[in-house]
């Protein structure tokens, strides 16, 4: 369990993290989502006591990070795969981490095996590919067999096989009842792994919700229809009081009605359908919509989605922000 309360970080004029409050619960994968520069890594560094918060508090199992005895046995983190001395072998890198937390040497061999680096354990880390570096970082996170795991952009630079491996690993860690907190700027990646979402934009909390609720609340569901009898179908739908959007080509889109209803309607009028498919706007769109809304909020002022606590100095309204282009398009 990670508890974040009123967490803020200011770098000079810029408020990188602005009054974040959320909990990360055990047993599920919690995705930490935000566009690049939203403050994800800064938040994670503050969770690990690496950066000092300007205001607020993070507690790991009820305690501050620097009050944990042998912190690697409570929380393991992959922050930056390059945070390794390149001249040191993978084994020695893990060994020095293990020793600092009283973890037995045998465990080093175990985690090397888990991440598949046993064959290169004696090799210097500077010869490692990005994927091997990520695996070494993950081995470090797993070293203390911690109840909480934190991964910052773990799939960056990995090949498909590596990405699949990390997804499976995160899910199995959560299934074991551990707390798994993983950041990404890719909504599509989160959709495949996360059960719960914490979304931030410009350092502010935008959403703290289950993945299912997030999709329901933030995405449009519609039915896509293609028919050789397009004009007839349009007519029928119109008479039934159903609004149709012509989406280019032969495709029609209908909001707010089930595919069953439309299919039966078409059958009754003996209209052939080539496609009748319920669609969900992609999570990527939902995510963009959410962040775009946050930008709107910043520009006009009003209650934010995530309801962050008020800060003494309101952040200046951004002239142009992430998501603007999407709104225009």
């Amino acid at each position: 369990m990670i508890e974040v309360a009123g967490l803020s970080k200011r770098y000079g004029e810029k408020l990188a993290v602005d009054g974040l409050t959320f909990d990360v619960r055990p047993g599920i994968v919690t995705g930490f989502l935000g566009p690049n520069g939203a403050g994800k890594s800064t938040t994670m560094r503050m969770m690990l006591g690496l950066d000092r918060p300007t205001a607020g508090d993070v507690r790991i199992d009820g305690r501050h990070y620097d009050r944990l005895t042998d912190p690697l046995t409570h929380i393991g983190a992959l922050l930056d795969a390059k945070a390794v001395h390149g001249g040191r072998s993978a084994f020695n890198h893990l060994l020095c981490l293990a020793q600092s937390n009283g973890i037995p040497r045998a465990r080093v061999h175990e985690v090397l095996d888990t991440v598949g680096l046993t064959a290169v354990a004696k090799k210097k880390a500077k010869g490692f590919s990005l994927g091997m570096g990520q695996r070494l970082g993950i081995a470090g996170a797993l070293l203390g067999d911690p109840r909480i795991l934190m991964f910052d952009e773990p799939v960056n630079g990995l090949d498909p096989e590596g990405i699949h491996w990390i997804r499976t690993l995160m899910k199995s860690l959560a299934a074991q009842g551990r707390t798994v907190f993983v950041s990404s700027h890719l909504m599509s990646e989160m959709a495949l792994t996360a059960d719960h979402l914490v979304v931030i934009g410009q350092g502010r909390l935008l959403a703290d919700t289950s993945m299912a609720d997030f999709i329901r609340e933030n995405s449009r569901s519609y039915v896509r229809i293609r028919s050789p009898q397009r004009e007839q179908l349009l007519d029928v739908l119109h008479r039934a009081g159903i609004t149709v959007v012509e989406a280019g080509g032969e495709t029609l889109e209908v909001d707010g009605h089930g595919s069953e209803e439309i299919g039966e309607l078409a059958a009754r009028h003996r209209i052939a359908l080539h496609e009748l498919s319920p669609q969900q706007a992609s999570l990527e769109e939902a995510f963009m919509q959410l962040t775009a809304e946050s930008v709107e909020y910043h520009a006009h002022a009003g209650p934010a989605l995530g309801d962050p606590p008020p800060t003494a100095v309101p952040p200046p309204a951004p002239r142009r922000s992430w998501g603007d282009d999407w709104k225009k398009g």
Partner: peptide, 18 residues
């Protein structure tokens, strides 16, 4: 300074936060 130039410092301080 090896700790800083390689980024190892973050790993080290996460392991030994005091």
């Amino acid at each position: 300074s090896n700790e800083y130039s390689t980024g190892m410092i973050r790993t080290s301080l996460a392991a030994v936060p005091r």
